[in-house]
Design a binder for these strands. Structure first.
Lengths: 118, 118
DNA sequence: CCTTTAACTTACTAAAAGTTAGTAAATATA
DNA sequence: TATATTTACTAACTTTTAGTAAGTTAAAGG
């Protein structure tokens, strides 16, 4: 009955969650929401634990989903600006609702984990 | 500035998202929300693409976070019931808000991906 | 005493994700 | 002349995650 939810190809939830739920996408979306416009290296400095490769490939997949817009200036050295699209902005409140839940419950969940480990 | 968000240990969002965002947790939480109480094999039948191993380990981690409660009946053959805890229930609306966004935007995002691939 | 059943667990394999280091390209500056 | 700048891409490698298949447990029924 819920089998279709487990089918990555055709399930909206799985499909979107595979994107949002990866290691960096949500972080980048929230960061772009705060900063409005950022260049590659600015993002890299803000999230210094991300590698160039992962930042580059995450931005690319966010661009493919039209959640992030990429604006290239034909200069050398390269200049590329990233910002949220309207679709990207429409996702933000849902992410923030999750973030909020996470913040509120973080300590209790940490305690539960410690308790469980015993 | 947002570096702390990238630190898995201490960041509430990363910490929770690492759990929710895995391959099966969200699906199981939503399923349990619909069905209220389920046994191991019932969940397994509902999500037939999950392996026993993944179901078992996902349920265990949801239990560790006290999102799911596990009730063991000391019988042979074994009987174990799973249901959402209050904390688990409190997460559901946030997940559903994401699910809803995903459903609404699924087709457009699929189209964007196709467009981008060209 | 052998099979059945539910809920796992373990050992192994495969696939996905992430890391690190190196490369490119035009110009401005030391 | 050499070097830094900026945004990537690529290749080689390591780590993490997921999946498969077989084994475990323990009581009851035939």
């Amino acid at each position: 009955m819920l089998n279709k939810f487990a089918d990555v190809e055709n399930c909206p939830i799985r499909n979107i969650l595979d994107r949002i739920g990866d290691k960096w996408s949500m972080l980048i979306l929230l960061l772009l929401n705060e900063e409005q416009v950022m260049r590659f290296n600015e993002i890299h400095k803000s999230i210094d634990s991300i590698s160039q490769k992962m930042l580059s490939s995450t931005l690319k997949s966010l661009e493919a989903d039209d959640l992030v817009q990429r604006k290239i200036y034909p200069e050398i050295p390269p200049k590329v600006e990233y910002r949220l699209t309207e679709r990207g902005k429409s996702l933000i409140p849902h992410l923030q609702s999750l973030v909020n839940w996470a913040s509120v419950n973080f300590e209790d969940i940490s305690n539960s984990r410690l308790q469980y480990a015993k």
